[in-house]
């Protein structure tokens, strides 16, 4: 019983995303978004693309944004000679915002992405940072750091565990979007 209680509490004490705002005033309108290629600093192959696609999926399920297509973003990256694993410069961010005609640009960075498999059990770990830029001038508006393990979501015994990096990423992105909404950062007047 004590063990179950500890496990239960363990599931409840997982950390929230950490949000750092860089401006006192967020854009009034955030109706269109472009997700930039995610910089992958981990050794996980294709981790950046996985997180990019999960983020697109999480955003479109949040509300009917006008989301720039990944293909369009990549094309502008090519034209600007920015590699997908590079962070775009402020000048390049301004071009991206203007070309894609979006209110916000979301960039991401994977600090840690790993999947440990022990005795047939997975324990994925993910540390990510998302940066949100103003699409009009490329200034950094806010960034969010989030770190989680698959076991952080344990509810009881093995229930609730996140066994894959994709599932863990999906849950973490959902938590980040909830936080952004709570902070009123994703407002789009109808």
């Amino acid at each position: 019983m004590v063990g179950v209680t500890v496990l239960f509490l363990g599931g409840c004490t997982a950390s929230r995303p950490y949000l750092q705002a860089y401006t006192a005033q967020v854009p009034v309108q955030a109706c269109s978004v472009a997700v930039l290629p995610v910089v992958n600093q981990s050794d996980y192959d294709q981790g950046g693309t996985i997180l990019h696609r999960l983020l697109l999926s999480a955003l479109i399920n949040e509300r009917p944004w006008r989301l720039a297509l990944e293909g369009d973003v990549r094309k502008i990256y090519r034209e600007l000679h920015v590699r997908p694993w590079q962070q775009a410069s402020p000048d390049q961010l301004r071009v991206l915002g203007s070309r894609l005609e979006v209110d916000l640009l979301i960039g991401g960075k994977i600090i840690t992405m790993e999947e440990q498999i022990k005795g047939g059990k997975f324990n994925p770990r993910l540390k990510i940072e998302l940066q949100v830029y103003d699409g009009a001038d490329g200034t950094l508006l806010w960034s969010t750091y989030h770190s989680r393990k698959g076991t952080d979501y344990r509810k009881l015994m093995h229930f609730g565990l996140s066994n894959t990096i994709s599932e863990l990423g999906k849950k973490m992105l959902k938590e980040i979007l909830i936080l952004w909404k709570e902070e009123g950062l994703l407002a789009c007047p109808e």
Partner: peptide, 18 residues
């Protein structure tokens, strides 16, 4: 209009099915 209108992600692991 080349607009992303729907997306969905599904992940499944053997261990999820226990």
């Amino acid at each position: 209009d080349a607009r992303l209108v729907w997306a969905h992600s599904v992940e499944l692991c053997d261990a999820d099915e226990i």
